[in-house]
């Protein structure tokens, strides 16, 4: 009996040590950091995306502007064939623009989870239609000196593809290390890994993201940020249909 009490106590103290409880506010603050890791209040970046499948490999260079989570504008710089193809997201609306045919196509909410330009990333990944902070229930799984693991399950009114998402966040520097996405039946669908961490001003930002789908062999998509500027002044006109249709 004594032993049992002792071991329970021991176990309790042990779990206490590894997972100190976090308040909801703390969790929220942490998720807000993850949501805005590449965004802050405003951001302006250029990046190179490499798409690799068993059949082909191609890379795209893009320029992107964001304001909060609600506004995103992206345009493809290279290759020449795709140059000028742009994406605008305002609140819950999203459009693609194809300069060759001078056509704006609205992306319906049902397409949020389909592939962006043939990559493994979804439209939603790029425009952050859903935010971890607001649209998911968070639960602390594990906390160590280096890493915080959080399990996210979508709130009932969130139209999410994912049954749950498990995020590993750097405990001290608050940048994401890894995100694993599961479907409703608990099966692992894809893993997003972060690397090439760079100090940008006060914050630490992983400059490279690698997304690996688990059900497709020999396939992944990489995004490498060439340059990110945070909290730059942006005109409101950046996030307009007029700007979307501007010939670049």
């Amino acid at each position: 009996m004594k032993f049992l009490i002792f071991s329970t106590l021991l176990f309790y103290s042990f779990t206490q040590a590894t997972a100190q409880p976090m308040t909801d506010a703390e969790l929220k603050a942490l998720l807000k950091k993850v949501d805005r890791i590449y965004r802050s209040d405003t951001s302006h970046s250029t990046m190179t995306m490499k798409i690799k499948t068993p059949q082909f490999e191609r890379s795209l260079t893009m320029e992107s502007w964001t304001r909060g989570l609600d506004y995103t504008f992206m345009t493809i710089l290279a290759p020449v064939k795709d140059k000028g193809i742009s994406t605008l997201k305002r609140k819950s609306k999203m459009w693609n623009y194809f300069p060759k045919i001078n056509k704006v196509i609205k992306i319906p909410p049902s397409m949020m989870l389909s592939s962006w330009m043939g990559s493994d990333f979804t439209n939603d990944d790029f425009v952050k239609e859903s935010s971890y902070q607001d649209d998911y229930f968070a639960k602390l799984l594990k906390r160590t000196k280096v890493m915080v693991s959080i399990e996210l399950t979508p709130k009932s009114d969130t139209s999410s593809l994912w049954g749950k998402v498990i995020i590993d966040i750097h405990a001290a520097k608050y940048y994401p290390i890894k995100q694993v996405f599961y479907d409703e039946s608990g099966e692992k669908i894809r893993t997003l890994e972060f690397s090439h961490v760079k100090a940008l001003g006060a914050r630490m930002v992983p400059m490279k993201m690698t997304l690996t789908p688990h059900h497709k062999k020999d396939q992944y998509t990489e995004i490498l940020y060439n340059k990110i500027d945070f909290d730059v002044p942006l005109k409101a006109s950046v996030f307009t249909r007029r700007n979307l249709q501007k010939r670049r």
């Binding site: 082909f56 191609r58 693609n96 194809f98 001078n102």
Partner: peptide, 16 residues
């Protein structure tokens, strides 16, 4: 006439 489809390399095929 404008047409959109997906190219073999996953690019968005679009032309006039």
């Amino acid at each position: 006439l404008a047409m959109i489809s997906s190219g073999v390399d996953g690019s968005i095929a679009n032309d006039l």
